[in-house]
């Protein structure tokens, strides 16, 4: 990445100081460079960084790949059966990849049994994963947080499940916030997930439709009344660790629900 940045930066020095090109002309030069690099994503990110660092006001928009449109009926069928069937688990994973929405993936990984993931070759078959074969992937992911090797194993698995950018800092922040919410489920295994889903809906982290199965709603529709009570259930020790970790770095430029939640806590 850095190599690209330096390479582009050197070109900008020539454009600005020797060729004295206008902003528009520099923009056109960038278009040619991007074509030459076959629309490489990393290269485009670097171009945008250099353009920004040099004070110009244009940028290249990497349009998001649009996935399959979410179908509540199809999803409900898959998610309710995935826990019981390896085949449905496989279909659910394929479905998540097609929809390509991290919010849906975070809302669904509780239904992925580790045993099935091992059988499907999505997660490595080793002593640790075997010991947790009855758990779901959501539990496994957060249990592994204190063990670097196992955590990396889970991250790799998450990448395979469609969380392509999970290693990037913003996603790591989201993951830490998910981890905080998970502590509510840990403390209240029976009803915790309803409380977590309610918080997620209230802060716009996840669209409510992802927690609806036909008539059934897996969140508290009048959540705002109990929201503070629910937030207090978050593990305070974990909360302090996350707060300390991100106290200077959460400078959200967009209204992401996780950032809102972080600031409220």
């Amino acid at each position: 990445m850095l190599d690209y940045y330096d390479e582009i930066s050197a070109l900008f020095d020539i454009y600005e100081n020797e060729e004295r090109l206008s902003e528009k002309a520099i923009c056109n030069k960038c278009k040619n460079l991007i074509k030459k690099h076959h629309f490489n994503r990393d290269f485009i990110y670097c171009i945008n960084d250099v353009v920004n660092d040099r004070g110009y006001c244009f940028k290249f928009e990497i349009d998001l790949e649009t996935g399959k449109v979410f179908d509540a009926m199809e999803y409900s069928f898959l998610i309710t059966n995935a826990k019981k069937s390896q085949k449905k688990t496989e279909q659910l994973i394929l479905y998540l990849k097609k929809v390509n929405d991290h919010r849906l993936i975070f809302a669904s990984i509780y239904a992925l049994k580790v045993e099935y993931l091992i059988n499907l070759g999505i997660i490595e078959n080793n002593k640790w994963t075997k010991a947790h074969s009855k758990n779901n992937f959501r539990d496994l992911l957060f249990i592994s947080a204190n063990d670097e090797n196992n955590y990396q194993l889970c991250i790799k698995t998450a990448e395979k499940l469609g969380l392509k950018y999970i290693k990037l800092p913003y996603m790591q922040f989201w993951l830490d916030m998910e981890g905080l919410l998970w502590t509510i489920e840990k403390a209240d295994p029976k009803k915790g997930y309803i409380k977590v889903n309610t918080i997620k809906v209230a802060f716009g982290i996840t669209p409510r439709i992802y927690f609806e199965r036909g008539e059934k709603k897996y969140y508290d529709a009048l959540g705002s009344k109990n929201l503070n009570k629910y937030l207090k259930l978050i593990d305070q020790k974990m909360l302090e660790i996350v707060k300390e970790k991100y106290k200077n770095s959460v400078e959200p430029t967009r209204m992401w629900g996780y950032s809102l939640l972080f600031n409220v806590l």
Binding site: F203, G204, N228, L260
Partner: peptide, 21 residues
Amino acid sequence: DGMYPNGYMALYYAFIADSEV
């Protein structure tokens, strides 16, 4: 509840939740 997430909404939730509790 139907809004796109925004700061006023979060402020409302925190505020109303407090007053209801």
